[in-house]
């Protein structure tokens, strides 16, 4: 809920900077799979918090970002589907997460 609240605050701030014109019709966000975000729940919270604001009825486009890891041994970058942090190529366990922790607002559309 507080993450959605932060999102709405960021957009309202930017909307004011743009001259407080129009309504927000669409919001594009990127959510990594290794975050504590569930898109359906996010949408549910958004519907509640956006009510009676210029964001009401805006379409939330949530792009899920897969978890990718870079192996410290063989340097290969691979996507992993389950939370077992082992390099699919060589079995090494020391991996760096290169994507999957995103929680970004990319853009929104005004009409």
């Amino acid at each position: 809920m507080s993450i959605v609240d932060s999102l709405i605050k960021i957009i309202l701030e930017e909307w004011k900077r743009q001259g407080e014109k129009g309504r927000v019709s669409r919001i594009n966000i990127q959510v990594g799979k290794l975050t504590a975000i569930i898109p359906r729940t996010f949408q549910f919270c958004f519907n509640i918090l956006a009510k009676d604001t210029v964001l009401e009825n805006a379409q939330l486009e949530i792009a899920e970002v897969p978890v990718k890891v870079k192996c410290s041994q063989c340097n290969s970058v691979r996507e992993i589907d389950e939370p077992v942090f082992v390099c699919p190529e060589c079995g090494e366990k020391a991996l760096e997460i290169v994507s999957g922790r995103e929680l970004f607002i990319e853009s929104f559309e005004l009409v």
Binding site: Q18, F104, E106, S107, F108
Partner: peptide
């Protein structure tokens, strides 16, 4: 009109 933001939602 599309407004680019590119901001971490948890930035604050």
């Amino acid at each position: 009109m599309e407004v680019k933001v590119v901001k971490n939602i948890l930035a604050q």
